[in-house]
Design a protein around this nucleic acid. Sequence first.
DNA 1: ATGCTATATTCCATATATGGAATGAAAACC
DNA 2: GGTTTTCATTCCATATATGGAATATAGCAT
Lengths: 122, 122
Amino acid sequence: MKTQDSHSRKFLKPEVLKLIGHPVRMQILMALARGEECVCHLTFMLGMRQAYVSQQLAILRRAGLVVDRKEGLNVYYQIADPHIRELLHLLEKAVEVPNKVHHHGRIAGCPCPKCQIALVEA
Amino acid sequence: MKTQDSHSRKFLKPEVLKLIGHPVRMQILMALARGEECVCHLTFMLGMRQAYVSQQLAILRRAGLVVDRKEGLNVYYQIADPHIRELLHLLEKAVEVPNKVHHHGRIAGCPCPKCQIALVEA
DNA sequence: ATGCTATATTCCATATATGGAATGAAAACC
DNA sequence: GGTTTTCATTCCATATATGGAATATAGCAT
């Protein structure tokens, strides 16, 4: 009879928090907390090399925090579990992350479908 | 005009999460989330050597997550900030920790005042 | 002052994380 | 076929974390 049973299942091992507590991975997770994004979009959003972003995404994927979905040439990532998304939304209020991860519009130079379609329509 | 402003200040750096995401430190924090405890009590609760518990407490103290208070021979630790305590209570629902950290009664063999007084009264 | 008790610190070998660079694989298009 | 584009992986030198062991400090008692 506790309050707030919505996410009371123990779904996180302490070690997973250590993975989250990494500046770049945190930024990636915060960006994904708002919704699915493709690798190239994340790359341009964070201003980092693609290889490095993929590397961090692989770590998050192996830890079960994110899942990927291939669509043609692009690979889209999203948070694996609604519980984790909830946790990220809570952390979003407490943790300092660069503003850029909250910029969820078109990104100049990004070649991903979303950005290109938005460009054509504008 | 956002909902829930109670703890919306950005008080946590991502690196601090990494500190929290350590099995032993997580257990210590979860134990302290319920209230102040002395070092010896934590030592007996977790069944670890005192030197090691002090070592981890020092890391948490330097990170600003806990504060200490000396009283005679004992040193009592507590969570430094109500915001952090709130976060820990949220994490408590999600993170797997051994049951022992939730045992907040007297601990057999613990020499701390709390446990000794309880022993005499019983 | 001596000794006891609770806690802190320092040292250190080993393990793991970090992030750069080059390379690999796979799909779409010519 | 070949080429381009997007993403993944592997290798590696360096940095940081981990946790054991010994030692240090500080308060209280006699």
